[in-house]
Amino acid sequence: MNLLLVIIIGLLYTAGLYMMMRRSFVKVIIGLILLSHAANMLIFTVGRITKGNPAFLNKDGAIFEPFSDPLPQALILTAIVIGFGVQAFAIVLFKRAYQTAGTDDLDEMKKTDED
């Protein structure tokens, strides 16, 4: 299970970075989203995963080892909410830029380099 997650995280990072290097707006946004998912999954995996068990105590009320740490999941929750807001903003920003500039090619975004 862990190995599978690790491979998925690696794939998400690769895909995210690849998409961010594309020239189209939409692909850059998809890249950003994948990248934040990758970071979230990474934290999730780091907090250890136990299959089919309750959080701390087993059925008899005794602590079992190794239990999965709930804190990373709380962190991810925060990160997902923040990421959601920021990505929503980014999408609107890219849309406005597309409307104003009339292109979705990042290579055409040269206006800031002119004096």
Binding site: M20, V28, I43, V46, L71, P72, A90, A97, M109, K110
Partner: peptide, 30 residues
Amino acid sequence: REQLEGAIKYVTLNLLSSALFLAGVGILYG
């Protein structure tokens, strides 16, 4: 137009930095 273009560059690179920071925090916690 300049503002939006500047904002795109600023937003993209800063979000990338945030994602790296978050990953760093996660590994550090681990």
